[in-house]
Design a protein around this nucleic acid. Structure first.
Lengths: 182, 182
DNA sequence: AGGGCGCTGTACCGATCGGTACAGACATCG
DNA sequence: CGATGTCTGTACCGATCGGTACAGCGCCCT
């Protein structure tokens, strides 16, 4: 809930009055839960997001005995989390404005962990030397897909990108036909 | 100059006081040049950006007799404009926050024109059916590269992505000569 | 029953927000 | 030289910003 306010209006745009009405809490309750104020609220949201991705995506990519299944799961979870392109990535949005200076380590960590976990999975299924480049390109494409889908107000951009990623990461042996999307 | 203030602090974060100090103009001058206030300033900046890309990139992609050269030029101009990953895309940043509602048409137009111009160029050099997908993926990757480069505070992410794009769009037959910045 | 304590609403703070009004500086032109 | 119209700095406006102080409420423990 708190995360959605930041997601919808950005850090600067999420005023305490707006947070209060959206969460149904007064300032007293908010500052009791987050003595550090707005900064601590955003940090808590970023930590929660990081924990979600760690549990649902990163851990599997690093540890699973079946890296191809973990990658497929990553694509599915990503599609679900971002509501098939209708939801914005809060971490990516924070990275673009000057909130990056406040939360720089958490923002960098989010992307670095994703990239490194995916690199490990890719190394264990054929892509040896290209694993890092492929992982970087994947994380990057997901962010770009979210930007473009929202800019064009066309969530299907995100779905097409995921299809292309599935093809690139897993090859034609698992996918059905060539992803010449309709 | 005005654009840089929005780029550095976002629309909400670029207060009139900050704009005044950075541009050296008082409120009187600002509201004389932009009677519509902050909204009109941002619109002017977006229009200026759109015109720049139209003149330096889109026009060549659509009209040039040598589409491969136009694509190579696009990559070089893109690298220059975004300072090799050290500069943020203002249009992309606006797309993520709720400023999209204010400038939706300009934001969508910026990306749609880029994608469509590149599609035309790609159609004329081999990629027939996949031209649209390739163009969409390219525009998307550039945005993602900017997000990731800034999030990780590592501009080289952007350079690596451009190299990958060059290979995907032009193939390995392209000469290794570095694109000359006219 | 009653004393502490965690939680909540609310009044209030100085600062700053976007925007307006307006008086003067300035150049131009008769 | 005086009139005119274009710019520009500044004082000011109500609204809202993030944050603080505090009184009251209920809940638990003894």
């Amino acid at each position: 809930m708190l995360a959605e306010v930041f997601r919808a209006h950005g850090y600067a745009g999420a005023s305490l009055a707006l947070i209060g009405t959206r969460t149904g809490l007064g300032k007293g309750s908010l500052y009791h839960a987050f003595p550090g104020g707005k900064v601590e609220m955003a940090q808590a949201v970023l930590d929660e997001i990081g924990a979600w991705f760690e549990g649902r995506i990163y851990a599997s990519l690093r540890d699973t005995p079946d890296p191809r299944a973990a990658i497929r799961q990553m694509l599915a979870e990503t599609d679900g989390y971002f509501r098939s392109g209708r939801r914005v990535c809060l971490v990516g949005a924070f990275a673009l404005c000057d909130e990056r200076d406040l939360f720089g380590d958490r923002i960098a960590g989010y992307f670095a962990q994703w990239r490194d976990a995916l690199t490990q999975a890719l190394r264990r299924c054929g892509h040896d030397t290209k694993a890092f480049d492929l992982a970087e390109d994947t994380v990057l494409a997901i962010q770009g897909g979210l930007v473009l889908a929202r800019a064009l107000d066309d969530p299907e951009v995100f779905g097409r990108m995921l299809k292309r990623l599935e093809w690139t990461l897993l090859g034609e042996t698992t996918a059905r036909v060539h992803p010449s999307t309709s």
